[in-house]
Nucleic acid binder design. Structure first.
Lengths: 121, 121
DNA sequence: CTAAAGCCTCACATTGACGTGAGAGTCAAC
DNA sequence: GTTGACTCTCACGTCAATGTGAGGCTTTAG
């Protein structure tokens, strides 16, 4: 499929898809005209990219991870302890981020759930 | 206390503290010299700011929330339904963000926890 | 064959929360 | 009263993931 369809099917903008390629996250083939051609797996790949991006991973970190998820569950991590460590670091970061978010949510809850009006209840 | 001490006690950089003031999140008094003077509550305020920032809230959203937390639990939200709605929106955003993070963490776990080496494991 | 879509490559603009000097005044200690 | 640490106000720089044209091919529908 061409970039427009992939964009529609993933929700990612065309600009974003080109950016992902530039960052080494996608490697579409090309028509003689230069048009990008994506295969079906690209749809899942883009979804994963977006999940990881929204989790705060940078494109470079994702670039290291993606090849390992490439075949949807083929994992090579065991062969690369450095990568394994890097992933653990990211995992810890995410866990802490979740805790921070829960703390922030608690603050909001203290405003939403307990509307204790004091200026004359 | 002056800005340096507040910085030390909160972990926020001096630049960040000035920025928070610029965004209306802090309102220190001033010495005739222009030096900023913060009270004790500022420490807690800055901590809350950082929690909410790390949760993805913008300074403008925080500016709307902070006055309501001002006295550490005095809530005025009941008087302002618009603010209440805004908070609910933020809360939903945070909850979704948490879910996204958990999804991302699952992806990482599939790499960390199941190091299925295929190249001759 | 032609017009409307769609796609291409630059390349500068944007947003948010700061970083990083520059140049200058101020406070604490000796 | 002078050094040295601290603080002040600009104001431009940064980083990451896009947005946004500009100018120009290509493909598709009729």
């Amino acid at each position: 499929m061409k970039i427009g369809e992939l964009s529609r099917r993933t929700g990612a903008s065309i600009r974003a898809l080109r950016y992902y390629e530039e960052q080494g996250l996608l490697a579409p083939t090309r028509l003689p005209s230069g048009y990008r051609i994506y295969d079906e797996r690209s749809v899942a790949t883009v979804h994963r990219i977006r999940v990881l991006l929204s989790a705060g991973l940078g494109t470079s970190a994702i670039a290291e991870i993606l090849p390992n998820v490439y075949d949807d569950s083929v994992v090579l991590t065991g062969r690369c302890p450095e990568l394994h460590e890097g992933l653990a670091v990211e995992r810890a970061r995410i866990t802490k981020q979740i805790e921070d978010l829960e703390a922030a949510r608690d603050i909001l809850d203290s405003l939403i759930g307990r509307p204790l009006v004091i200026t004359g209840g």
